[in-house]
Design a protein around this nucleic acid. Sequence first.
DNA 1: TAGATTGTTAATCGATTAACAATC
DNA 2: TAGATTGTTAATCGATTAACAATC
Lengths: 207, 207
Amino acid sequence: MANDIPDIVIGRLPIYLRALTHLAAEGESTTTSSYDLGRKLGISSAQIRKDLSHFGEFGKQGTGYNIKYLIEQLRQILHLDREWAIVLVGAGYIGHALSHYQGFQHRGFQILWVFDNDPGKIGRDMNGMRIRNMSELGALVRSEGVKVAILAVPASSAQETTDLLVESGIKSILSYAPINLTVPSDVNVRYTDPVVQLQRMTYYLDS
Amino acid sequence: MANDIPDIVIGRLPIYLRALTHLAAEGESTTTSSYDLGRKLGISSAQIRKDLSHFGEFGKQGTGYNIKYLIEQLRQILHLDREWAIVLVGAGYIGHALSHYQGFQHRGFQILWVFDNDPGKIGRDMNGMRIRNMSELGALVRSEGVKVAILAVPASSAQETTDLLVESGIKSILSYAPINLTVPSDVNVRYTDPVVQLQRMTYYLDS
DNA sequence: TAGATTGTTAATCGATTAACAATC
DNA sequence: TAGATTGTTAATCGATTAACAATC
């Protein structure tokens, strides 16, 4: 988290990247403009230009941005010019869905191993991956230098599992557990809680 | 979205509510302070007090906040003093995981129906719910006045499905499709894309 | 009472937007 | 060339924090 570029800017880059990738797939044009991209995303063109300007000059006056070139640049900025190995912890319903998710491969990630501590699940297959004993996690993660984890365990064991991940060298955690986790300052956690998202929207509904 | 209270404040209230609910479940104390809560969440005590002050005075000098009372107040503010019916659209892996998610019931939501347009899935059972034909969605949602939907369909049909939801009177959409959706200004969309979250974190990893 | 903590004000900090010279 | 669009500066807007009187 130590950098002079605001994290909120970093947070928008994957959104830009995603939209640009769609544009590239459509193949209707080789270029786009900050105005065009902003309209698609509901973001002002000034903000897009400002965000990108933190990292360099990627466009051309009069014509805008070359889509493929900007994609390539964003990939480099976000360190997506390699594939990141992920450990998935928790082989419940959410873990199961994630193990089948097609979106990882083409966007820079691959689930390497799946762990659970339920003896009834350990050794079983989940979408071609053998569910491993959580007790093996530390040694494996350390030996391969894996840095990214997805946490899909119940809230009751989420902090404990997080401590194990941190101790094993994990630096980025995407958590599906509906609880706030405590981690050292050099570890990044992002949360996905559908209920929190829903509750944020019901405020705007007349009850 | 039309209100004078910043959406970013609204976005923190469910987080406060979640933490308070944990505190209440632990039952170690009947009160908490903005300092205590802030430490747990990594938020400043001043921000918590400021956020709450938009809605009233819920604390007491010297003692802090009564946990149960504050929970009750936050529930009212967020319109969670009732149960919201949800339609789940898409009975793939993500829809399947969501249909088993235990966290909805106790936090104000209930999945009422599940829809899909795959003839191979329609009529089948998913965790006790019959998967319905998407063609029935409009009439059912309109007749029951459902306002909240979870979108768990492929990106390729997400916009089309969203249009159907909007047309049927849905006002809040939680989307799992990795694509930006276009909706009228009176409809709220929130996104959940694990890859976007992961990509935001790899920036901070040395590649 | 003394200590703790609120709610609120004002100051600070940071992010977004408007505007435009530069230039493709 | 004329039109379009960038990158950047300065202005504006909004959010966070510090500080403290009020008071439980």
